[in-house]
Nucleic acid binder design. Sequence first.
DNA 1: ACCGGAGCCTGTTAGC
DNA 2: TGCTAACAGGCTCCGG
Length: 270
Amino acid sequence: MPELPEVETTVRALRPYLLNQTFTYVWNDWPRHIATPSLEELRFRLPGRCIQAIHRRAKYLVFSLSDDETLIIHLKMSGRLLVVDRDEPKDKHVHTAFGLEHGQELRFWDLRKFGRVYLVHNPEQVLAGLGPEPLEGGFTAEALQERLYGRTRFLKTLLLDQSFIAGVGNIYADESLFYARLHPQRLANALQPDEVAALHTAIQKALNMGIEREGASINLYMKPDGSKGDMQNAVAVYQRTGDPCPRCGTPIERIVLGGRSTHFCPQCQR
DNA sequence: ACCGGAGCCTGTTAGC
DNA sequence: TGCTAACAGGCTCCGG
């Protein structure tokens, strides 16, 4: 569920609660939530570690801890991170909770149990292989052009490939292609330079809009304080099959590409 | 390189 | 109302 803007919003919201806090214990009722190390080892290694920085890389939350440890969390389809008082009853979808000082807990709510927790010395162990961050300086239209060269895939499937570009998921892929006026089945290596430039601008526009609106609460996403984002009110095509295109009024179509729902305007996306 | 399908999970919604 | 099937924002593995 959470894509780059939702994870970024979560990171920003967690910082005031968590920076300089020290973990005190790990609670868990579903050990497969912990990808690495074992739950037993996590319980041994995490308590006493202080949170020195929190960053986002692609759709991962990265907590830099004291003693050269890094806690990494991926929310996958249905994860939420919440900071609450330890006394508050746990919802049944909370499967991991991290004890903090001052009676608080960082809770990992995860309806579909796809999310994962990692504790590693070297973050690259988890993050290696990710493509460029689309909102950072190095991601220019020229850089995008170079990466598209020789790729024969559909634009939609390529945008979802985390090794091609980091952090774009199904919502923002569809929205980006809409803004760029490009059909999701256009082949990556067949774009004209002006189309590459339009795609570059469109990806950044869609992601920045998502961040400004603090994420899209279309299905399950919530911010750490339990409130909703606002991006769902600004979505042009995603999950709007049959609705009029905001640009030309043609009904939005839905097809399946790479096993994922894909929404676009057949009139103005070519 | 790239595609499709299965798998991981639980819940909601659309359709009959 | 009650059942079933489809669908859900991610990602990995496997075979072709």
